[in-house]
Simulated assay, not measured.
Amino acid sequence: MKAVKILLLLLILSSCKSKWEKTHPVVENITESVYASGIIKSRHQYQVFSKVNGLIVSIPVTEGDTVKKGDAIIHVLNETAKLNTENAALSAAYAAVSANTEKLNELKVNIDLAKIKLNNDSLLLVRQRRLWEQQIGSLHQVEQAELAYKSSLTSYNIALYKYNDLQKQLNFAAKQSGKNLEISTTQNSDYTVRSDIDGKVYSILKKNGEMVNTQSPVAVIGEAGNFYLELQADEYDIARIRLGQKVFITLDSYKGQAFEASVEKIYPIMNERSRSFTIDAAFVKQPPVIYPNMTLEANIVIQSKEKALIIPRSFLLEDDYVMLENKEKKKVVTGLKDYQKVEILGGLTTADVIMKPAP
């Protein structure tokens, strides 16, 4: 009976002892980083929208095609726009100053005739006044000559006014009709959806014969072969992220490999729904084959240190305590942390043995 009790006691002691893991601090490198998720995007990637509503009549490109800035992506039915443009062209031609030279020439003839009569009446007035000064003729004749001169002067001024006024009207009508033609031509060009960049067509979101509107995208275009990372970082970590920090990413398409990037832009507004900030990062060396919208996981390196005193993070109690081998809790000063390790700045040496209770 006594032997059985001793055996049970040994088993209990052995069981209790097995619940405690032991380790000691070691000197090695440590890197502190923050986690971010994200996707790969093409440089200058954007969704293409139509400026008008209508029916697609042709799509001259397919996914994977490279395009130049201004190349057509989609053609929308525009018969009404064509007719409006033709009508505006007719109006512009009719209102052109060159098409109304006959009207101007007619008024020029009237001006010339009025000027001839004015000169003639002026000479008659001067002659009549000289005669009157010599007591030849009558005052009534002088007055009649003055009246004829004033009438000719008025007629001449009216002829000039009519000519200048017609010229202004023609110039205004020509400019107005020209602008209407420009507007109509621009509206007509809106029925052809074009690329804004030199790039690659990554997606066509509509089919021939479907309707398009100004609210829904019709295609996705971006630079060919030039990609960057769009990351989402938690608001609790954003204050520690800076431009130029290293980023190490992993992709499902490249299992077991990590690729280096660098933070190039931090957007200064938080997404209220996800409570995260958007960060752009550029590849240091781009993977050989990648595509837009591939998902990734990233670690943004905040700081790193060589030859640091390190313990497993799981051995840390209450953030700044450890359990010594003699079951004594000891306060420590911590430094850098990653997901598995923590730096000890004070309170332990490599000779110390620490313990971690089993969960």
Rank of each mutant, 00 (worst) to 15 (best):
I302A: 08
D280G: 08
A282Q: 12
N293F: 06
Q303N: 11
P312L: 00
D280N: 15
P287M: 07
A308L: 01
D280T: 12
N293V: 01
I279S: 12
L316C: 01
V284W: 04
N293Y: 15
Q286G: 13
P312I: 00
E318F: 03
V284L: 14
P292L: 07
L316S: 07
P287Q: 03
V284H: 10
N299I: 00
P312H: 02
L296A: 08
K285E: 10
Q303F: 02
I290K: 05
Y321N: 07
E318H: 04
L317D: 01
M294C: 06
F283P: 06
D280A: 13
P292V: 07
M294I: 11
D280K: 11
I310G: 02
F283V: 06
E306K: 14
A298E: 08
I279N: 12
P287S: 05
T295V: 05
Q303G: 11
R313N: 10
Q286E: 14
V301S: 12
I311C: 01
L296H: 13
I310R: 00
E297D: 13
A308K: 05
I300D: 09
K285L: 11
V301L: 14
Q303T: 13
V301C: 11
S304Y: 10
S314M: 08
E306F: 07
E318C: 02
V301M: 09
F283E: 13
L316N: 05
F315R: 04
A308R: 03
I311V: 07
D320C: 02
P288W: 02
